[in-house]
């Protein structure tokens, strides 16, 4: 494997981890949504993320000789490189949809940029993902408005979710050495340059929903270095149970 392939593998794995962990959290909503209709809608979103994880793990796996399942089910906490915001427990419905909103606004810009990747596979995955995100974003924007302008309780819950999540959003825009190198090669999308556009869009939507952009000053990062909250280990122990309890078997 040459240097670029090795970097690309790591890049695809971290994007795959983002989709995997978020998809796993969304699975937890099955039979728990506020209406049956919303249960079906959340399942569609979850399926999009699981599908995305599979595509990215396959891309990485073809380069490093591992299967998508080995990547998903046999790596431990320190090897996972997902963004911390995605591993936080699903919380209440407001927490899940506000997180989705912050993520959708980011992914909408990010995957748009990634369609220009010099790597065709990555560009193709981004092209497919961009369409899915457009739908997710439409939903989450509406939900934010409904929370904010619905009842005092829904506004309170949405604001609480924003306040908790805000400390984790910086990490979405952090570019480390790996990504800097791949950006220079035209393979990765530069997340740092998306920040201003994202901030403006998110601010506008939050204010339109009569909610407040948090002024919290604490910031937490570490996912890309495998430094996680304690939540991830539990998510993985559940997700990886079968492959851990019965290693090496075919299902």
């Amino acid at each position: 494997m040459n240097d670029t392939d090795s970097l690309l593998t790591r890049y695809a794995i971290r994007l795959g981890d983002d989709a995997m962990v978020h998809g796993q959290r969304l699975c937890e909503w099955s039979s728990n949504a506020p209406t049956l209709e919303e249960d079906l809608a959340l399942a569609n979103v979850a399926l999009d993320y699981l599908g995305r994880a599979r595509m990215l793990y396959s891309l990485a796996g073809n380069l490093c000789g591992q299967s998508e399942d080995e990547l998903a089910f046999t790596r431990d906490t320190r090897a996972f490189q997902n963004l911390l915001i995605l591993e936080l427990p699903r919380g209440d419905f407001a927490f899940t949809l506000v997180r989705q909103f912050l993520l959708d606004e980011f992914e909408h810009l990010f995957f748009d940029a990634l369609t220009a990747s010099a790597n065709e596979m990555l560009a193709a995955i981004a092209g497919k993902t961009r369409k899915e995100v457009a739908y997710h974003r439409r939903r989450s924007q509406e939900w934010l408005r409904r929370f904010g302008l619905g009842t005092a309780e829904s506004a309170r819950r949405a604001q609480a979710a924003l306040d908790t999540l805000w400390g984790y959003v910086d990490e979405m825009f952090a570019v480390d050495d790996l990504e800097a190198t791949l950006i220079a090669e035209g393979i990765a999308a530069d997340r740092a340059v998306l920040r201003a556009t994202w901030q403006a869009a998110v601010t506008h939507a939050i204010e339109a929903a009569a909610l407040t952009v948090p002024d919290t000053t604490w910031r937490i990062e570490g996912g890309r270095q495998g430094l996680h909250t304690e939540h991830l280990g539990h998510l993985l122990s559940e997700m990886q149970f079968m492959q851990r309890a019965y290693p090496g078997l075919s299902w």
């Binding site: 506020p34 209406t35 919303e38 419905f93 619905g150 009842t151 829904s154």
Partner: peptide
């Protein structure tokens, strides 16, 4: 758990 959502 979904009641506040439907109310909203």
């Amino acid at each position: 758990d979904g009641e506040w959502v439907r109310d909203a």
